[in-house]
Simulated scan of single mutants.
Amino acid sequence: MRRLRAERGLSQERLAFESGLNRTYLSAVERSEQNISLDNIARIAGGLGVEASTLLVREIHGSDNVQELTAE
Score class of each variant (00 low, 15 high):
1 M>E: 10
2 R>A: 14
6 A>V: 10
7 E>S: 08
9 G>K: 11
12 Q>E: 15
12 Q>G: 13
14 R>L: 14
14 R>G: 08
16 A>G: 04
17 F>G: 09
17 F>T: 12
18 E>P: 03
21 L>M: 15
21 L>H: 03
22 N>S: 15
23 R>C: 05
23 R>D: 13
24 T>M: 09
25 Y>S: 10
28 A>G: 05
28 A>K: 07
30 E>D: 11
31 R>K: 13
33 E>W: 01
36 I>C: 03
39 D>Q: 14
40 N>W: 15
41 I>T: 09
41 I>Q: 05
42 A>M: 13
42 A>I: 09
43 R>C: 11
43 R>A: 15
44 I>T: 11
45 A>R: 09
46 G>I: 10
46 G>E: 14
46 G>C: 14
47 G>R: 05
48 L>W: 07
49 G>I: 08
50 V>M: 10
51 E>N: 12
51 E>L: 08
51 E>I: 01
53 S>A: 14
56 L>D: 07
58 R>H: 02
59 E>R: 10
59 E>Q: 08
59 E>L: 07
60 I>H: 11
60 I>S: 11
61 H>P: 02
62 G>Q: 06
62 G>I: 07
62 G>L: 08
62 G>R: 06
66 V>Q: 05
66 V>A: 03
66 V>T: 06
66 V>R: 02
67 Q>S: 12
69 L>T: 01
69 L>H: 04
71 A>N: 06
